[in-house]
Computed example of a mutant assay.
Amino acid sequence: MDTETSRKTVMDAWAAFASRDPARIGAVFARDADWRPNPGTPPPRRWTCPATSSGARP
């Protein structure tokens, strides 16, 4: 993926977030996406799921 393609992908993702449309946001991400914080980054206090979450609730 070249720089311009990466840039467009990120801009499209932010536009989807700005729309607040769950279907549009979901279309940007793979169903099996796994969200991982940077090592050493504590989760927010109100975060109730494990540090590594694939969307499944504990």
Score class of each variant (00 low, 15 high):
R7K: 15
G55T: 00
A30C: 03
S6T: 11
M11N: 08
T52I: 07
A18E: 10
D32S: 01
G55N: 01
V10Y: 13
R31Y: 08
A51I: 07
S54R: 15
I25F: 08
T48K: 15
A33Q: 07
D21T: 05
A15P: 00
A33S: 11
T5Q: 15
S54G: 13
A33E: 02
G26V: 12
A51V: 10
P42W: 15
F17G: 04
A15W: 02
R45Y: 06
S19Q: 05
P39F: 05
R46W: 10
E4L: 15
W47Y: 14
A13V: 11
A56T: 01
P39I: 11
M1T: 04
A56R: 00
R46C: 12
P37D: 07
S6A: 14
R46M: 12
S6R: 14
P58A: 01
A56I: 00
S19V: 04
R24P: 04
W47F: 15
W35E: 00
R31M: 09
R7T: 14
F29H: 07
D34I: 14
A15I: 02
K8H: 11
T48V: 12
K8P: 03
P43R: 15
G40D: 13
E4P: 05
G55V: 00
P50F: 02
C49L: 13
A51D: 04
M1Q: 09
T41N: 07
S53D: 01
